[in-house]
Write a protein that binds this DNA or RNA. Structure first.
Length: 117
DNA sequence: TTCCTGACGATGA
DNA sequence: ATCATCGCCAGGA
């Protein structure tokens, strides 16, 4: 019996989920992890966004649980994400997105899509 | 192989 | 509200 702890790549599922987040709404890293069946692994989501090609995806709709943009404050990426959020009509309260108001609540259709892998 | 570093998050002081 | 601590763990050094 090989002791192999076969590495698993979760990026596909996570990115597929990300594509479902509607304009004007946001998800937190942790929420995305939960939806992908990876509870407690928010950091993995951050790693995936940083590592994979997200140019065709709404990467800017992923913010920290507290509503803040996780990219280092003031960096190019930070400005870019902030601008994109504003463009979608999200009203920031200071430097954060009011989560209660903009958090994505997946509808049944979205939930079902998650089930077929 | 060990050590360190994060696009995180919950909790407690 | 702010801050330190701890859990989590895939990669890089």
């Amino acid at each position: 019996m090989p002791h192999n702890g076969s590495k698993v790549d979760h990026s596909h599922k996570v990115l597929t989920l990300l594509a479902l987040v509607p304009p004007g709404q946001v998800v937190s890293y942790g929420q995305l992890a939960d939806l992908a069946g990876l509870p407690g692994r928010a950091r993995l989501i951050g790693r995936i966004l940083r590592t994979r090609d997200t140019s065709m995806l709404p990467w800017h709709r992923v913010v920290a649980a507290n509503g803040r943009i996780s990219l280092s404050r003031g960096s190019d990426g930070w400005h870019e994400q902030r601008q994109r959020l504003l463009t979608e009509g999200i009203l920031l309260k200071g430097d954060r997105v009011p989560m209660e108001q903009y958090r994505w609540r997946p509808d049944l259709a979205a939930i079902l899509m998650l089930m077929d892998q």
